[in-house]
Amino acid sequence: MTLLKVRGIKKSFAEGEAHHQVLSSINLDVPKSIFMALCGPSGSGKSTLLNICGLLNNPDEGRLYWQDKEINFNNKKQLTLLRRNHVGFVFQTFNLVPVMTVFDNVEYPLMLQGVAKKERQERVYEMLFQVGLRGFENYLPDRLSGGQRQRVAIARALVKQPQLVIADEPTANLDSETAYQIIELMRELSKKLEASFLIATHDQRMTPYCHQIVNLQDGKLHNEPTSMQEAKNEVAAVCLS
């Protein structure tokens, strides 16, 4: 079953009098456990598409199917609950809550889900172990380096074992050494936790790790061949518009 199906999505923004068509008729299938990159030059609409896939924004036209069920963008409560239970987010600027410790930041999504305290604690520690930050539980984010902060963010995104993780340029604020480590970490955890990753990037280093790369240009998606052999077997076809 396809995790997320995007069909005929359009999105435009008003620019004064004129309408700027950012996405014009996008079709995309996001299978389970895929590690997918969304490439394209700055301003091509990557963030706009990701926001729609992450249920943060509604398309002007078109439909989204979450496990074959159409998403109703007017039902705010349902969108919030879907995000709460099934979607993780990793941001370019990390977006940790500065007054919360590393532990608290990672615990937050589990608190939203109402997970019991003891289980929360176990899962947070386990997740921090996975991202290599055991021992940093009581640090406030401002004491961490960029790479460490992004690890916390990844832990926060994955602690609830989401089916989809949306990552908008997660390595853009990191040096290349750290960026590699973060990419590798995401790739590894994606496989381990069977979570689909949808990553917006114009970072060429990302491409060797991806099952599938889609290119966004002039509001349209173009499939790109990947170097990974397994990708060919795993990836579902991308519907070109």
Binding site: T80, T93, V97, P109
Partner: peptide, 16 residues
């Protein structure tokens, strides 16, 4: 603003 946006993206209701 961004912090509040983040909390809401993570699935917090407005009242939370």
């Amino acid at each position: 603003t961004r912090e509040i946006g983040t909390l809401r993206a993570l699935g917090s209701f407005d009242y939370e």
